[in-house]
């Protein structure tokens, strides 16, 4: 029971908005904002399971993977540890609609099993971590993939995954700052002043964390390319069958990843 703490930082200060921190009107509004995305995700999940009943166990495995990934410890500049959001990797591997569902389920488990985040703030947290984060990451991924289409598969994939993971992470934290600033506007300068305060407090740790998360995700995806290229091709991450073969461009990604 206690050994879980070696791997997972249970109870560290993270960016999940705690239960009761938002006024109830804001909590309700963010739940309404996240609901269409999650509903869309549930519909695509239902279609996937109906079309292929075997997909259910793989979706379950993906969900458990997302939960454990988002609870891993990663080093932070302040000497303490923090967690990756996992939004970038999830969006690239499972696509944003499915990630909206898996992300929300992860947040529910984090609220009930780890006391990270709340139940009434589940909608607000889902909006930042399961909707904005994955969609930003996926947008960045597609953009970089098409911009670097002429480069080698390894370079293109490495760059795209790095951008997806770090921008997804940054977008998540920016959204949380916006949510807090909207709930607690500054008495003198309103929303903008309050946003600057919240973003200022959190950016100290979150910008380096976004870079670290990007690097970790590149390492992770490069290893997956080496070990299970077929799986990645099935998920639509790798495009060419010859992609797994190491090429001269490997070194370029390696330098960036190091």
């Amino acid at each position: 029971m206690t050994t879980v703490h070696e791997v997972l930082e249970v109870g560290s200060s993270d960016m999940h908005i705690a239960e009761g921190f938002l006024p109830w009107q804001h909590a309700a509004a963010w739940t309404a904002a996240a609901a269409p995305f999650v509903a869309h995700g549930i519909r695509s999940l239902t279609h996937a399971v109906r079309a292929d009943p075997d997909a259910k166990l793989l979706i379950g495995a993906s969900g458990a993977f997302c939960f454990v990934l988002s609870a891993l410890k990663i080093p932070s500049v302040t000497g303490s540890c923090s967690h990756p959001t996992g939004a970038g990797l999830g969006a690239v591997l499972f696509r944003p609609p499915v990630m909206a569902v898996l992300g929300t389920i992860t947040l529910l488990f984090q609220a009930l099993l780890l006391a990270h985040g709340g139940l009434t703030t589940l909608g607000a947290n889902a909006f930042s971590m399961a909707v904005v984060g994955p969609w930003t990451a996926y947008g960045a991924y597609r953009l970089v993939r098409s911009a670097t289409a002429s480069a080698g598969e390894q370079t293109s994939l490495g760059l795209a995954v790095f951008c997806a993971a770090s921008l997804g992470s940054l977008a998540t934290y920016t959204t949380t700052s916006v949510q807090l600033a909207l709930a607690f506007p500054d008495p003198a300068s309103g929303f903008l002043g309050s946003f600057a305060t919240f973003a200022g407090i959190f950016s100290l740790t979150q910008i380096p964390l976004a870079v670290i998360e990007g690097l970790i995700t590149v390492v992770l995806v490069r290893m997956l390319v080496r070990v299970t290229p077929d799986q990645l091709r099935r998920l639509g991450v790798l495009r060419r069958p010859a992609a797994a073969a190491p090429t001269a461009s490997t070194e370029a990604t390696e330098e960036k990843a190091g």
Binding site: L72, P84, V219
Partner: peptide, 16 residues
């Protein structure tokens, strides 16, 4: 960084 990345990759492969 390298270990955390490999841990994630190994977990993915094992879960699937």
């Amino acid at each position: 960084t390298r270990s955390a990345g490999s841990l994630g990759a190994a977990l993915f492969v094992r879960s699937y």
